[in-house]
Design a protein around this nucleic acid. Structure first.
Lengths: 192, 192, 192, 192
DNA sequence: TATGAATGAGGTTTCATTCAT
DNA sequence: AATGAATGAAACCTCATTCAT
């Protein structure tokens, strides 16, 4: 009987439903059914439908940011850091295709129209990549003429697109392969 | 007074409106007003609201595909081809921020849920990149161990993300700069 | 090229279309297509959509009234008159199932809501039956205690229902059989 | 304050509104207002507007069928049965002119266009009449040469038309009078 | 007379949100 | 905290009608 974390269950249900139908084609009642709660209960935990998506985004970004920080904690070599970052990203995505779809597609779509949604977590994520590159430039591991913000964004775009391709085509095994190849690819583009 | 191509005007209006509010937050009547036609007129040219978005996609992809083909027609050097391809993409995007937003965000979002939408034009676009890479591999200009499909997708992801960044931040006249830099970046990743 | 009676063609087309889809589910453009004219042309001959139905009714009733008058002209025996009346009704209906459906169903449905539609022709039709009965009562051929208005209405209801049954079930051959039987049936109810 | 059977209230409201304006000229919002519920509430109980009409038909036919069965339960004489059947029909109609109009006019009009509407209850109703006649033929009370299906349909057409006449003219308290007369009329047509 | 592209009012229906229980 | 029946605003789309040609 005791439903320990109802908020969590609603968020998970939302990810499933949003991934399947897209945010705008999903009905709050579908999320409620998937979560095993009444429609009204949703509104005890979230301000409105949009808020569910925002919280999915915030929670998920927090989780992946923490995960990246843990993964990178003991590394010093910039090339190795970037390799691990990319691998961690792909691993996170691999754990939940649904979440990957929601983050890459739905949030991107909707964020522009959600006034006051704090997109900082996304900026932080880009910032992590940029910092790795900057470190590499400073340490001499990477070319000195790379634009770290731009490269970070390009790298993110590439791995995000590959995640999405994987998410939509279900070609699951290929993901780790893609991870290795794309990493190698970028390394050559960066290394001094 | 009769505006010649009403279909064209509606499509242009739709791009503007969809870019501003997102497809699902846009009302057909807004598109009509922007196009300077009555609501019902829309339905003389399009099956329904979704169909407008689909036609935007089809028309725009056809235009950019044609443009790329023209641009690449007389080139033989794979590296040069890729350089031109990327430049052409950025130039196309630069001409209409709104169109860029609709193509990268709205179409991506919605295409999954539009049964029967032919995504082939997108496949063709990826195919163009892949073919350039394949040619480069054959000619020895590019490494032999690159996966052309994967690289194509990664490259597309990167330039698409950069387009989007530019589109959303409005600021950067930096697009052409980004173009050069990202091209150089990929070149190093590919060249033998 | 010369389309002699466009009004006639539109009315015929309307009967076909209304019988198939019902008045309210029929579109003016369908009638136009069926008649081989442009949508706008309809409005050169009819005030509006409802007017088409009204004219179908008026024209058809005039035709059947005239037909009945001709058929009954030389008859004197009330029983014979009634027999011929019923036969003429069934024959008229048999010539156009579509018209039968429109007259029995659509006009009945709609007449209540068409202000100012003159339902007199229908009253005249009932009146013809009633007069035959009255004559029969006077001549002693029919019972003296029959209520001619009531009986007329009952008889009309019966033959109308049978027409409709025939129209909907297409059981074409059965119509003349039904005609004979129902006539015999009513005769027994009336004859002194 | 909670009205017990909202479905019932909506059906009753629908009968009133449909009788007044006709099905196709009635707006769902009118039915809602008449029922004292919000527009959306209608759709908690009915699939769509058409479904309301279908349910009116199904419910009403079930009611009148049950009523006829009760009324006829203890009777054995075929002539008496028919007499009671017709009386029961007229009584049912007399209780609600609006319902009579909807059943005779609107349902008839629309049923053809409502795919999947089960018209069996109407067939059952006709079947009840036919069975009474068949019984009468077997028992020798009625002529042996009557066609029971045909006669049933004729009888139904007659009483339906008279109901409608009464419903539309509002005036006649004459309904029970009509009942007696038409019964007598048919008896003579049937009796051996 | 004839056309048919354009109009725009308005209805059906959906669904996020509320609130009495 | 939880429910889910009820709400009602709002949008897509249809289609009768008009009018410039």
């Amino acid at each position: 009987m005791a439903q320990p974390d109802k908020r969590r269950r609603i968020l998970d249900a939302a990810v499933t439903v949003f991934a399947q139908n897209g945010f705008y084609n999903s009905k709050v009642s579908q999320v409620a059914r998937e979560a095993g709660v009444a429609d009204g209960t949703i509104y005890l935990y979230f301000k409105n439908k949009e808020d569910i998506l925002i919280q999915v985004f915030i929670d998920s970004m927090a989780a992946i940011l923490a995960r990246q920080e843990t993964a990178l904690a003991n590394l010093t070599d910039p090339a190795e850091k970037l390799r691990v970052f990319i691998a961690t990203h792909f691993n996170s995505v691999a754990e939940s295709r649904a979440l990957a779809e929601v983050l890459t597609v739905e949030v991107r779509q909707s964020s522009k129209f959600m006034r006051g949604t704090d997109m900082k977590p996304f900026g932080q994520y880009l910032g992590m990549i940029a910092r790795i590159i900057d470190d590499g430039v400073v340490s001499g591991a990477f070319r000195s003429n790379v634009d770290s913000r731009l490269s970070a964004r390009a790298i993110f775009g590439a791995i995000d697109e590959l995640s999405l391709a994987w998410a939509m085509e279900r070609g699951s095994a290929a993901l780790s392969d893609a991870c290795e190849r794309v990493t190698a690819f970028f390394m050559t583009g960066l290394e001094a």
